[in-house]
Design a protein around this nucleic acid. Structure first.
Lengths: 410, 410
DNA sequence: GAGTATTCGTTCAGCGGCCAAACATACTCC
DNA sequence: GGAGTATGTTTGGCCGCTGAACGAATACTC
């Protein structure tokens, strides 16, 4: 909980009463997020006085971020409070995901509800960059119109891409699996759109998926976890103390190129025995006797799952071996980051029942602290939606963290 | 930069003007740390107004944390400013290190200068826990007396241990290389001491060494780096954005048990191929034909260095092989954390000339982003002192971060 | 049914923080 | 010696939080 702004500007910044107000407004809004609460309850949760909460809530009401839900049915003696909740029409975020196997776009309101969803499956690798970006821009235009029709003011747009993003320049540096490099995605999408955009931001899909999982709120009280996103490549989104850790240059979480088997097969990156080579989707499919090259992502996975459902030995063995390798990678994550929760997303989510036991065994053998502090390994809640939803909600994050700064609907 | 308190209490806390004051006082003190500066320069550095800086400096002066150094020799037109600097007698921290190869203890003043230093080399593994702790307590007593004699008020005591520390309970959970487990180090040292202690804290040596390096301030502008501490064990202290990352439970940075050779020798931890087993000091010494068991730490290292100086092939080969394995570990760190600087400490510091090339080669082969973003690998500046000095300074950190909260000399 | 206790939300004076601007101070340059 | 410039201090104003008092709405008690 910091009242100082996070972000690229690393310079130490002085603080004044306005920052205090912002911080406390964020606290109040966070308290309201968890469900209908009265002003007095918010005061109890946040530690602020009722007077302060009242004043902040007044501002949030006129900003349209919070609504009063009328007097609550009395629960005991004393005057009953008036319930407060996030205003579903208080604003929305648009999320877009550009991925190897398709495009998707959602509109999410302040309460986290998905109000609009469109997906366009299909292999994007054969298509020209411009064509893909134009399709994506069209999805955004539809989403913006849908939001307006629903009476929602769009506060921001988040775009998720499968590659390394230069956050300062907001440029996609390289996306190996798309074959793109140095693409100013936002700029080109914006110019392909016919509508005026609110603020927009670009980020890596694993990072945004991790944020999506974080905000889905189903992972207990943990504010430190790693989302391991399995696909052809293997990436990790690292959330420490509630904050996404992109690393100094945004290149963090490259779990796929962790060395697991020094004498293993050669990787595209030039090294040997990268995790990606012995736990990635292609390897699993090959090992299971399926054809990875012709059938990618959404195509081959059903065949694999069918084989697993029938306990086909090669498929089961492939996934179990991948699980063991993955466990070595997870052990490394836990030994280094000391997170207590690891969430498996992407294709690892449906494969979880078969991956779990070997992965857990490897982790328990290799993590020194596992004896004192249990490590939770769970499948992703949002599944393939994690990145889009995370992108949309990240667009709302600024509003939620600093409700009075960027607020003001219409 | 946060004005909210960090620490075990994770509950969201409201903020008020007092916190603003604390935050800004910390800013001012940080600006003063970098060298003699005038009030006006501090205002420029921090973004505060001269009025505010003046008022804060007044408080820091009466608190005895800052001194005026008289009018500065004029540099151009205008009234010359009065230089401010940290008060060398403004307080001190005591650091103690309990390690396999000896005990050491230092007193560090506010400016970071070491004012007292005692080391007691010798293998601690044969000695009973109580005996070791009593020796350490005696060192602390000597340090407290030395500080008093120098007119320094000791603000806190930091203890560094080579093992996993439960920060909430302040208990050393396990120190494999000492053979200790579940030792309430602080409690037992305190009761073995004849003097009254100020606040004390216990932490892992690699973490404290990383803090020591961070505050030594010689690593450029980086505020994200990893210190890899080589000894019989291998630990890592992770500093991200200027903050030490202990992980959710303080068990982070266990680099020594990263798997680098799945079929390698069995480790004490039960797994196979831990980095510690193929790049730790014992392994290097054995491989170099020296006797690790009879001659530890400060005893065997000179022999190794002498052999290296004479280019003795077995010694050179041993260190080069260790460097290659270490490089695999460093690559994992960089791929996951995306730090741009890795500092090698402990025994790795004197071995650096021989380690560097193979380690760097392994890193460059295994880190995907190394092509765009160069990775700096340097030896530690503080060498074997990093952990003790870090421990002493960590005891001062609370004062520096919140000068007005815990201040008040005498 | 009336009075009392309890809880909720608001109002108001007070305190402490920062800021902006004016002022006093000290030094250089002409 | 006066003009110009930069430092440090003082003053008035604004803003946010606090604590206590107050009106409002409900339950409990006799």
């Amino acid at each position: 909980m910091s009242i100082a702004p996070t972000g690229p500007s690393r310079r130490p910044r002085p603080t004044d009463q306005a920052d205090v107000r912002r911080h406390n407004a964020g606290l109040v809004l966070a308290a309201v997020t968890h469900g209908p609460v009265s002003r007095a309850e918010v005061a109890g949760l946040t530690g602020l006085t009722r007077a302060t909460v009242g004043s902040i809530v007044d501002e949030l009401l006129v900003a349209g971020l919070v609504t009063e839900q009328g007097t609550r049915a009395p629960r005991g003696v004393g005057r009953p409070g008036t319930d407060l909740a996030l205003d579903p029409s208080g604003g929305a975020g648009v999320g877009v995901e550009i991925n190897v196997d398709g495009l998707s776009c959602v509109v999410v309101d302040l309460t986290g509800e998905v109000r609009h969803r469109v997906t366009r499956p299909g292999d994007q690798r054969g298509r020209a960059t411009g064509t893909v970006l134009r399709s994506a821009a069209r999805l955004v235009d539809d989403a913006l119109r849908a939001a307006e029709a629903a009476g929602l003011t769009v506060r921001g747009i988040g775009v998720a891409v499968p590659g390394l993003v230069d956050l300062d320049a907001q440029v996609l540096r390289i996306a190996p699996n798309l074959g793109w490099s140095d693409v100013p995605v936002l700029e080109r999408m914006r110019s392909a759109s016919r509508l005026t955009w609110p603020g927009a931001s670009l980020d890596n899909e694993a990072n945004l998926a991790a944020l999506g999982e974080l905000w889905s709120g189903d992972h207990g009280d943990t504010d430190s976890f790693v989302l391991v996103n399995g696909d052809v490549g293997v990436g990790a989104g690292v959330v420490l103390e509630g904050r996404l850790h992109r690393g100094t240059r945004g290149f963090g979480g490259e779990l796929g190129h962790l060395t697991v088997a020094p004498d293993g097969p050669e990787c595209r990156c030039g090294a040997r025995g990268c995790l990606e080579q012995v736990a990635g989707l292609d390897w699993i499919l090959r090992r299971a006797g399926l054809r990875p090259s012709s059938a990618h992502g959404s195509d081959a996975t059903p065949a694999l799952l069918a084989a697993l459902a029938e306990s086909e030995p090669r498929a089961v063995g492939a996934v179990e071996d991948a699980g063991a390798s993955l466990g070595v990678g997870i052990a490394a994550l836990v030994n280094l980051f000391d997170v207590d929760t690891v969430v498996l997303g992407g294709v690892y989510a449906p494969l979880f029942p078969w991956l779990e036991a070997p992965a857990r065994a490897a982790v328990e053998r290799r993590v020194l602290s596992a004896r004192w502090a249990p490590i939770s390994i769970t499948p992703s809640r949002l599944g393939r939606d994690a990145a889009v939803v995370g992108a949309a909600r990240s667009a709302l994050r600024d509003v939620l963290a600093d409700p009075l700064g960027a607020a003001g609907p219409v």
